[in-house]
Design a protein around this nucleic acid. Structure first.
Length: 254
DNA sequence: ATGACTCCCAGTGGGAGA
């Protein structure tokens, strides 16, 4: 069973790339972020034609998430229960006995800003909710665009990025808090190439120079950890014409 | 270098992303 996450940065623009990618990577589960589509504009027919059952939750201009599964999924939740949020950032469902939570974490913009405070509040709410979900689901995967680089080795220039958004001690403490719930960073269960990133700035020829961050993650519960066989970042879509700035991340469960 | 690119909504520019 393969699960993947991909921030597509506008599904309206990236739909052809998504369908091509799914042909090459017929994963059982895919969560999308930054669809940037209101629900009435979601391309449900195209995605169903590709062989997926899909739930979606969007808004115009910003945010927007979706859950695609080959098998039927149930118990769909949109956003974090008990956390009033005007932004469409979370979609969860259960498929093949696995609780899947796809999330587009807030960017935070800059430490000290209102958006950073929102990010902190959102992270606290997420942790409370995931802790509760873990009480009901032994097999759980939390995956998406976390907008957090957990360690300096996840940053191409950790000195320049020290204390900057995605790299602040506060954000990294929240990432550790998620791990402390019993989740494991699937990517770090394996030897990985150094300088592995999941996002590269559109500017400055950053992809060509491999200047990026690892901010898209797949966290697995203890009940799944022994089943994790591989976790990789697929850089190929970043080489497309008009690519997303993020690459998909995939995990393989045995 | 307070930039660089891309997307969106807008409308001949500006905000946001990361």
């Amino acid at each position: 069973m393969q699960l993947a996450t991909w921030n597509v940065n506008s599904l309206a623009v990236r739909l052809p790339q998504l369908l091509a990618w799914l042909e090459q990577n017929p994963v059982e589960v895919l969560v999308l972020q930054e669809t940037k589509l209101t629900d009435d504009k979601f391309p449900v027919a195209e995605i169903q034609a590709a062989g997926y059952q899909v739930s979606w939750f969007g808004q115009r201009t910003y945010n927007g998430v979706a859950l695609l599964t080959r098998a039927p999924h149930a118990d769909v939740l949109r956003n974090i229960p008990g956390f009033a949020d005007e932004q469409a950032r979370v979609i969860a469902g259960t498929v093949d006995g696995v609780r899947v939570i796809g999330a587009y974490f807030p960017n935070g913009q800059a430490p000290g800003s209102d958006k950073f405070a929102y990010k902190m509040a959102w992270l606290e709410a997420l942790e409370r909710w995931v802790a509760e979900e873990l009480q009901h689901h032994d097999k759980l995967v939390l995956l998406g665009d976390f907008n957090i680089a957990p360690e300096d080795r996840d940053v191409y220039d950790p000195v320049a990025w020290a204390g900057q958004i995605h790299c602040t001690p506060e954000e990294r403490a929240h990432f550790q808090a998620l791990l402390a719930l019993g989740l494991s960073d699937a990517f770090r269960l394996f030897e990985q190439p150094p300088k592995s990133w999941s996002w590269w700035d559109y500017r400055n020829l950053a992809f060509r120079k491999n200047q990026g961050l690892r901010i898209d993650h797949i966290l697995v519960s203890q009940g799944l950890r022994a089943q994790v066989q591989a976790c990789v970042i697929d850089k190929l879509p970043r080489k497309n014409e008009r690519p997303s700035d993020h690459a998909p991340v995939l995990v393989t469960l045995g």
